[in-house]
Design a protein around this nucleic acid. Structure first.
Length: 783
RNA sequence: UGCCCCGUGGUGUAACUGGCAACACGUCUGACUCUGGAUCAGAAGAGUCCAGGUUCGAGCCCUGGCGGGGCAACCA
């Protein structure tokens, strides 16, 4: 046996599951849906998909892939004909497919279910659970109330079933104009959940639908349609974003009231935010329509189409989604993570090629005029396991990058400068012997260099070192190219957080696209099709533009720069002069509460009396007394338990801490636990018959079944172990079985004491006195 | 001012039934290098929003506070 390899990223290391995957696994274990896993990705075809959707796609399709027999449907949630178009539906399919997911034959449309939705609406009306409301839009809004005030019932709420049915039929038949009637669920106009105040189910819209044409003039609302779509497709796990949290009550209500057995369950997760961009369809539409970008597939857009055109790979997007995880907290991911996953993928897959973005002419004075050498240059560096090379022309006149020359370089700059020598990648060493400047402007226009013929291929026979290697192209054989340098679309991390009177567009980055028209690229790329990806050596990853690039005109988009250590050094250098480092942001921790706060409570006299009775007469802590005073149900439980066992402080602790906990997961009146049994348990602990940890275990069983604690203790043999030898043996054996940890403890990692106590407690099934365990452990470990 | 959700290094997420706060990105060293890339080795950085409480032991359970977000479209 060899030692286990120290590989923290081993693929078979069981990565902890996110809360959704954990839930799916649990549902599978308990066979909640008969072992099925069925998800869906349900876009509305009213815009292009963006990387936030990619998160959802990866989640839904990912879960289906990961589970045997799992399926994920692609379903268009096309219930609002005003905004939806076929071109969007087609683009969405292309994007999902491009990301690498396959819905096989499960392409669905909500519009295919319109007849079924209608029948369900009829059913709800027949059951008296829905009605036709003829109030105006304004009235409905007014009657809905506000978040703090209950709504009022519509005067049409109690129409007869027959009248409702008749009206519904005539709505469908097109007898009414838009807005004349709506159908609403009859739920509760006073519900604290606004969505439950008789939500609209159907509205009249005399609009052409891109799929159903003019077949319908009534269209279902999201809350009515979506859950039914899931139910019709027998979806098991309906995943959506956090803002639908409150809609879940309605989702469940509809399914329950139309009588769907074993209904799908909605779970919400946080939508994706990335800094320096916006990820909401409404805002992206504005960018397109107001011409801030040039279409949905503008490479600056965070749309799938934009990212694709920019040169991002599906793999990079999927890995990014994998990396950011899934949770229930609103958060903002930094762009750096996306960039990392892009580089990480492209580094392994992109051929290297040389392109000079901002050319500076170089004449090699001692190189024969008219001579051209074709040098062999590998496409991939030594550490990328891929084969292939091309020939690049070397000649007397070259171009190098302007940035690679400095007349007065700082010490850390190791590229070209007067008198300095660098290596031309895959070529020769050259030394700068002269600098030619424009007489008027002083701008450097040309460099005169000498080359060392002995250094062909990049090595010198005398072994002298050159630190810098720069890229170049031959002046004559290189071809002109346009290069578009993309940068973040916005200048601030959170563009949506705009001051009064402004909006996110005020933060648009004017330099989000810089077009370079005079770039020169090596000729080897000439035959490559549009969309080809490269690494331009020392610059970044680029992709020839699928729209504008052709044999005549080469256009390249910068996907992402290389990591640039020099830029960091230069920035630091520049920043040192004026004020040095920016002080650490004041906002760090600004959302944290400062210090303690005074508790002000407007108590009734009755409440005050109770608190003082509890603290003074019964000797309870203020905390417990307050809880008891505030919660009538808990108070009653306490009083009744106290009647069975007269130890107020002990009983109060159990009631306040433990009874309250279990009572949260069930309706109060459903709690099985009886006062007498709790009293018995508390007494056993107080009498020293059982330990507290045993008592906790017994308690959780009691909370479910209300068994007599004495019976549980007896059945499981949980009496406290008083025998000192058992304690001694167990402690010794635990220490012996954990020699490494024991060593670490002795070396000062005393936090491990808890670990050891836990081990011993677990092995004794909680029957040992933890205090005794602890002190014995301490003694033995320091021997 | 009602209801609901959520607070863990700079960032995104983990932490099994309460038992060593972990991983990734980023940052900083160093090695290597014909890309100031990649790779490799290492380091710093949180005591889990605050205050009480329960417990031998709390990021996790209880109470109160503070902070952030969602909900008053005939949008989804």
């Amino acid at each position: 046996m060899t030692a286990e390899p120290k590989d923290r990223t081993a693929p078979d290391t069981p990565r902890s599951l996110d809360f959704i995957r954990a839930m799916v696994a649990e549902d599978l274990r308990t066979s909640k849906y008969g072992g099925r896993v069925a998800t869906r990705f349900p876009p509305e075809p009213n815009g292009f998909l963006h990387i936030g959707h990619a998160k959802s796609i990866c989640l839904n399709f990912g879960i289906a892939e990961e589970n045997e027999g799992g399926t994920c449907n692609l379903r268009f949630d096309d219930t609002n004909p005003i905004t939806e178009e076929d071109k969007y539906a087609r683009a969405i399919q292309e994007d999902v497919r491009w990301l690498g997911y396959d819905w096989e034959d499960r392409l669905y449309y909500a519009s295919d279910y319109f007849e079924q939705f209608y029948q369900y609406a009829v059913q709800l009306i027949e059951d008296g659970k829905a009605y036709v409301d003829s109030s105006s839009e304004e009235e409905i809004r007014e009657y809905r109330g506000t978040v703090t005030q209950p709504g009022r019932e519509s005067r049409y709420r109690n129409r007869s079933v027959a009248e409702n049915l008749d009206l519904l039929q005539r709505m469908r038949a097109g007898e009414f104009a838009d807005g004349e009637h709506v159908v609403r669920a009859k739920i509760d106009m006073a519900s604290p959940n606004m969505l439950m105040r008789d939500p609209l189910l159907y509205r009249i819209r005399h609009v052409h639908h891109y799929r159903t044409g003019d077949q319908w003039c009534i269209y279902p609302m999201y809350d009515f349609a979506h859950c039914l779509e899931d139910a019709i497709e027998r979806v098991t796990h309906s995943l959506c974003t956090l803002e639908f949290k409150d809609n879940r009550a309605l989702y469940d209500w509809v399914l329950q009231n139309v009588g769907i057995p074993n209904p799908p369950e909605q779970t919400e997760f946080a939508r994706l935010n990335i800094d320096y961009t916006v990820l909401s369809k409404r805002k992206l539409i504005r960018l397109v329509e107001e011409g801030h970008v040039v279409g949905w597939d503008d490479p600056r857009m965070p749309t799938i189409a934009g990212l694709r055109r920019r040169g991002v790979t599906p793999t990079a997007i999927r890995r990014f989604c994998d990396m950011i995880g899934v949770a229930k907290v609103d958060s903002r991911v930094d762009m750096g993570k996306l960039e990392f996953s892009i580089r990480d993928d492209l580094n392994q897959t992109s051929p290297r090629v040389m392109c000079v973005l901002r050319p500076l002419r170089v004449v090699i004075e001692n190189y024969p005029e008219g001579q051209v050498e074709w040098l062999d240059a590998p496409y991939y560096p030594h550490d990328v396991p891929k084969e292939g090379s091309r020939e690049i022309p070397f000649s007397r006149e070259l171009y190098i990058e302007r940035d690679d020359f400095m007349e007065n370089p700082p010490k850390e700059f190791f590229r070209l400068a007067p008198g300095r020598e660098v290596r031309l990648r895959y070529g020769y060493y050259v030394k700068c012997v002269d600098v030619i400047e424009d007489e008027d402007t002083g701008e450097v226009v040309e460099l005169r260099c000498n080359y060392d013929p002995e250094t062909k291929g990049g090595d010198s026979p005398d072994g002298r070192k050159v630190k810098g290697t720069i890229h170049w192209v031959s002046a004559e054989q290189s071809v002109p190219a346009e290069v578009r340098l993309y940068d973040r679309l916005f200048t601030v991390p959170d563009p949506e957080d705009a001051p009064e009177g402004q909006d996110f567009t005020t933060f648009l980055n004017p330099e989000s696209m810089v077009t370079l028209t005079g770039s020169r690229i090596e000729p080897s790329v000439l035959q490559d099709p549009p969309g080809s990806r490269y690494q331009f050596e020392r610059q970044g990853y680029f992709c020839s533009d699928i729209v504008d690039s052709s044999g005549e005109r080469l256009v390249y988009n910068r996907t992402v720069t290389l990591r640039d250590t020099w830029a960091k050094i230069a920035e630091r250098e520049a920043g040192r002069q004026p004020g040095g480092k920016v002080p650490k942001s004041e906002t760090t921790g600004s959302n944290r509460a400062k210090g303690g706060t005074k508790r002000i409570r407007v108590g009734s006299a009755e409440r005050d009396n109770r608190v003082s009775r509890y603290t003074k007469e019964l000797g309870l802590s203020a905390g417990d007394a307050n809880v008891l005073a505030d919660n009538p149900w808990v108070r009653e439980f306490f009083e009744k338990t106290l009647a069975c066992y007269d130890n107020a402080t002990a009983v109060a602790k159990w009631v306040v801490n433990d009874v309250l906990r279990v009572s949260k997961s069930v309706k109060d009146e459903d709690l099985a636990l009886s006062h007498a049994h709790l009293a018995a348990l508390v007494q056993m602990v107080e009498d020293g018959a059982i330990t507290r940890s045993v008592a906790k275990e017994v308690f959780s069983e009691m909370a479910e079944t209300d068994t007599d604690p004495r019976e549980i203790v007896q059945r499981k043999g949980l009496d406290k172990v008083a025998d000192g030898t058992v304690l001694d043996e167990l402690v010794s054996s635990v220490i012996a079985s954990q020699p490494d940890e024991a060593q670490r403890y002795r070396e000062g990692k005393t936090a491990l004491l808890g670990f050891f106590v836990g081990q011993v407690m677990k092995q004794s099934k909680g029957k040992l006195d933890p205090e005794a365990v602890k002190s014995l452990l301490q003694a033995k470990l320091s021997e």
